[in-house]
Each structure stands twice: as C-alpha cells, then as structure tokens.
Computed example of a mutant assay.
Amino acid sequence: MPRTSFPGRGTLIEETYLEGEAKGRNEGRTEGKAEERAQLVLRVLDNRGIPVLPEFRERVVACGDLDTLGRWIDLAFTVSEAEKLFAGEG
C-alpha cells in the first residue's frame, strides 16, 4: 500500500479512499482506450475512403465497450460500407 499523509493513515477509511482513487484511475484509462479505439475505427475508414454518416460516427464515438471497438477495428479494414460494421448487431 502506498504511503500517504491521509489523516487516519492505516485505517479502513484510508484503504477505502485509496481503492476509490485506483478505481477512478482505471475507469479513466478504460475511457481513454475506448476513445482511442473509436478514433482508430474512424481513421481506418477515412483512410480507405469509406464515407461515414454522422449517425454511424456518433455510434462509434459513443461506444465504450473495448471488445466491440476491437471488432469494429478489425472490420474497418475489410468492409465496403461503414454500415457493415454493425451487421448482426441489434
């Protein structure tokens, strides 16, 4: 456990506080990874000259699921239309 100057050091309160801090950092990292993957999907499509309608662009940018974004990255290299990224999804 890292050393802190938290009042009540070594108590359950400090442990809870530090766990919350770590959780916040992890959530921030996940959000950052999702943003990067979404931008990569759009970049691949753009570099391939595939137009992306605003509603599809918004859907990609709004997605926070890293697995889904990873699948879309893979598909972005092969699809002929942006809409096909979402084929088979509800």
Rank of each mutant, 00 (worst) to 15 (best):
1 M>S: 10
2 P>G: 02
3 R>W: 05
4 T>D: 00
5 S>N: 09
5 S>D: 14
7 P>R: 00
7 P>Y: 00
7 P>V: 00
8 G>K: 00
8 G>C: 01
9 R>Y: 00
9 R>K: 04
11 T>E: 09
11 T>A: 03
11 T>S: 14
11 T>M: 04
11 T>W: 01
12 L>I: 02
12 L>A: 07
12 L>Y: 04
13 I>K: 05
13 I>N: 04
13 I>A: 04
14 E>P: 00
15 E>L: 02
17 Y>R: 07
18 L>D: 05
18 L>W: 00
18 L>S: 06
19 E>P: 12
19 E>S: 08
19 E>Q: 15
20 G>I: 02
20 G>S: 06
21 E>A: 04
24 G>K: 04
24 G>Y: 04
24 G>M: 06
24 G>E: 08
24 G>W: 02
25 R>H: 06
26 N>I: 12
26 N>A: 15
27 E>N: 14
27 E>D: 09
29 R>I: 15
31 E>F: 13
31 E>D: 14
31 E>V: 06
32 G>L: 07
32 G>D: 11
32 G>W: 04
33 K>F: 11
34 A>W: 02
35 E>W: 11
35 E>N: 13
36 E>C: 04
36 E>L: 13
37 R>Y: 09
38 A>L: 05
39 Q>M: 13
40 L>I: 08
41 V>A: 08
42 L>G: 12
42 L>C: 10
43 R>H: 07
43 R>I: 05
44 V>H: 04
44 V>Y: 01
44 V>W: 01
45 L>P: 14
45 L>Q: 11
46 D>K: 14
46 D>P: 10
47 N>H: 10
47 N>C: 09
48 R>S: 08
48 R>W: 03
48 R>M: 05
49 G>E: 04
49 G>C: 03
49 G>R: 07
53 L>C: 08
54 P>W: 01
54 P>H: 05
54 P>L: 04
54 P>R: 05
55 E>G: 10
56 F>G: 06
56 F>S: 06
56 F>H: 12
57 R>E: 15
57 R>L: 11
58 E>Q: 15
59 R>W: 08
59 R>G: 11
59 R>L: 14
60 V>K: 08
60 V>Q: 10
61 V>R: 12
61 V>S: 12
61 V>F: 11
62 A>R: 14
63 C>D: 14
64 G>T: 07
64 G>H: 08
65 D>L: 00
65 D>A: 01
65 D>F: 00
67 D>G: 15
67 D>Q: 12
67 D>A: 13
69 L>G: 04
69 L>H: 01
70 G>L: 02
71 R>D: 15
73 I>Y: 03
73 I>P: 11
76 A>S: 15
76 A>W: 02
77 F>R: 05
78 T>D: 15
78 T>I: 13
79 V>W: 02
79 V>A: 04
79 V>T: 06
80 S>Q: 09
81 E>V: 06
81 E>H: 10
81 E>L: 12
82 A>I: 11
82 A>N: 11
83 E>V: 12
83 E>M: 13
84 K>R: 14
85 L>Q: 03
85 L>V: 02
86 F>T: 10
86 F>A: 09
88 G>T: 07
89 E>G: 10
89 E>H: 09
